[in-house]
Lab assay of single mutants.
Amino acid sequence: MQRVNMIMAESPGLITICLLGYLLSAECTVFLDHENANKILNRPKRYNSGKLEEFVQGNLERECMEEKCSFEEAREVFENTERTTEFWKQYVDGDQCESNPCLNGGSCKDDINSYECWCPFGFEGKNCELDVTCNIKNGRCEQFCKNSADNKVVCSCTEGYRLAENQKSCEPAVPFPCGRVSVSQTSKLTRAETVFPDVDYVNSTEAETILDNITQSTQSFNDFTRVVGGEDAKPGQFPWQVVLNGKVDAFCGGSIVNEKWIVTAAHCVETGVKITVVAGEHNIEETEHTEQKRNVIRIIPHHNYNAAINKYNHDIALLELDEPLVLNSYVTPICIADKEYTNIFLKFGSGYVSGWGRVFHKGRSALVLQYLRVPLVDRATCLRSTKFTIYNNMFCAGFHEGGRDSCQGDSGGPHVTEVEGTSFLTGIISWGEECAMKGKYGIYTKVSRYVNWIKEKTKLT
């Protein structure tokens, strides 16, 4: 034993070699072989497995989906700052455009905790909710729209109204504003409101030439003092309507412009014939205590009207009353817009006519005020429907199939267009061939041609 100890002390290297040989010859039971080890760690190889990531292109799944990435790591994937920024906006807080917040056709661009709407022409605001041009839906104005110097929408209202708090709607500024039905039992019968379409306001006024200088022999019209197929109006439903009495009662109609003036057809009036105007009328054979009678003290036909040349060209006249009318729910003026808007309103496509005229061709006159909704007829169809001249200051309205029309005794009465609950004068009943005849239409004086003249002559002093 002493000898062994001496050998170990003198030859430590020998001992180490012996131990190493023993270990190498022993069977290893701690580690699995290569094949079995792979069965336990069965993990798919990654895209760049075996390579240094710093030297390969980034992978979106590896960089940002398996674990949260930084902007720089995302930049490695896209290799483009702009594309990385677009991805980053949604990656950080989701897609803010998912709810489609942009209105009126706006395009949404996502941002971090926010979004941006790219608005089409005519709109602005956070969600493109603000109209900035009158060309689109009248700028959301209830009545009139004008573009300011910086191309912003400025709404306005006709006389007797003021802008509401929203700067879009119009509200009454006087007790009985024009064009409004205020009798409670008839307010439910107000005709369907007309909503502004998209309009090209630059070209809204037709490029028409008034044929002022045409000389033409007097034409022989049949029954051209021209509501057939209409309905009984309720008291106060058309408070701007008046009836004219002269040699015979209810020979023509008219509309209240203001307390002192009536507008009617020029062919209705004769110099030297006494005319009485009755406002607030409903049943011409009954006294309903809503009527107001006034005498006409002055007749002003349009300066281009000449019955000797043509009885229905420039067929418009103004009547001055001896005493002002007292405005109330049964006696209310009709609204008159400017030339541009009167023309736009007419193009809405349908209007209402009213009167006490004959209820059928050569038949009896109506006792109760009649009204009828009539569609506008395109000019080409209008011209083809008659052998008589249709001037540019006239328009056609009615039904091709016949059966409904204005008729004798309705002449001078109103053709009105309702705009968001307020009625505007767009025409004056003038003439036609018979009444409600198939293929024939009622012919009306186009008020847009005469609004400046009306307003100039009827100013209240």
Rank of each mutant, 00 (worst) to 15 (best):
N343V: 04
G236N: 05
R294F: 01
K457F: 07
D93C: 04
R83F: 07
D232C: 10
K152V: 12
S148A: 09
C335S: 01
V353G: 02
I390C: 04
E340N: 09
G357F: 08
D111C: 08
L211H: 14
L367C: 09
V154M: 14
T417C: 04
I300D: 02
P235C: 03
V199N: 15
Y371P: 07
F121S: 14
V359I: 15
G50P: 02
C134R: 03
R46M: 01
E171A: 10
F196N: 15
A265Y: 01
V195I: 10
L319K: 00
N295L: 07
S430K: 03
A265E: 00
V419A: 05
C18T: 11
K260M: 06
N36Q: 12
Y91K: 05
V374F: 02
I40A: 12
R384D: 08
Y450F: 04
G413H: 10
N452L: 05
A250L: 09
F345H: 03
F71T: 03
I299V: 08
V451N: 03
A9P: 13
N393Y: 05
V368E: 09
E72Q: 07
C335R: 01
R75D: 15
C382G: 02
V242P: 00
T194R: 10
L460D: 14
D338S: 10
N48G: 02
I17L: 14
W431S: 11
D95N: 14
I334G: 00
R140E: 11
T381K: 07
G421I: 03
V416K: 01
A366T: 15
E165L: 10
T81E: 13
K387I: 05
F87S: 02
C117H: 02
G122H: 08
N313R: 11
E98I: 11
G253I: 14
N343F: 03
E35T: 12
W431T: 08
S49P: 03
Y201E: 14
R373F: 04
T381M: 14
C157Y: 01
C407S: 04
C141P: 00
R373P: 10
P414T: 12
T85N: 08
S354F: 07
V202I: 14
E35N: 13
E27L: 03
N258K: 03
G351I: 01
L369P: 15
D111S: 12
Y330E: 04
F196L: 13
N166Q: 03
F395D: 01
G230C: 12
E142P: 04
D95V: 08
S70G: 07
A207S: 15
A397S: 04
I7Q: 14
S99M: 11
L327Q: 04
G58E: 02
P235E: 07
G355A: 13
I390S: 10
H289C: 09
Q96M: 13
V181W: 08
A307W: 07
N295A: 10
G421T: 06
Y330Q: 05
K152Q: 09
